[in-house]
Amino acid sequence: MTIDSDPIPVTLRWAVRLLRAEAVALGVVAAWLIWSDLTAATTHLTSALLVTGFAVAGAAALWALGGALARRRAGGRAPAIVLQLMLLPIGWYMIQGGMAWLGLPLMALGLAVTGLLVSPPTTRALGFE
């Protein structure tokens, strides 16, 4: 058994924390969607299940990527960056729809986590240098 003496850099630690926080937040949304699907008077079942499934899968993916990055798995960085960059169009359409109070922070979160994931300390910790 080997013990990695290099501490996880603060940038990677915060990226993992934020990914896990996003996973929890999306899990809460997924739970609300499940409750909504079960209690709705009328619904288009296929659409409801697809949206709910997408939320559950997104939460699971964010949590798994956070875990992979916490274990310094370099393969987790690219998918995590893609998911963070997906927050940009989501935030943009929220702003266009009159929900700038939510869209702007989502865009900022996506850019912040992406910045943490491509920062030099994180890059070194994941073995890209």
Rank of each mutant, 00 (worst) to 15 (best):
R13C: 03
A23E: 00
V10D: 15
G110M: 04
G115N: 13
L111V: 11
A70W: 13
P79S: 02
L111P: 01
V51Y: 11
A74L: 15
P89S: 06
G67M: 04
A59L: 04
G53V: 07
M94Y: 07
L106F: 12
A25P: 04
A23W: 00
G98Q: 11
M1W: 04
P89Q: 05
A100F: 13
G76T: 05
A60V: 02
A61D: 07
M107N: 10
E129K: 00
L88I: 15
V29L: 11
A64C: 04
A31L: 10
W32H: 08
L85F: 11
L50Q: 13
G53I: 09
G76D: 03
A21G: 06
D4Q: 10
L104G: 05
L49S: 08
S47I: 14
S47M: 11
A80K: 02
P9C: 09
L88D: 03
T42D: 14
S47W: 09
T46L: 15
L33V: 00
M94P: 00
L33A: 14
A55S: 09
V10C: 08
T2S: 09
D6N: 10
A23T: 02
A74N: 07
W32N: 08
W63H: 12
W63Y: 09
G58S: 09
A59S: 14
A64P: 01
D6P: 00
A80I: 08
V29T: 07
A48K: 06
A40T: 06
H44Y: 09
L117V: 02
E22T: 02
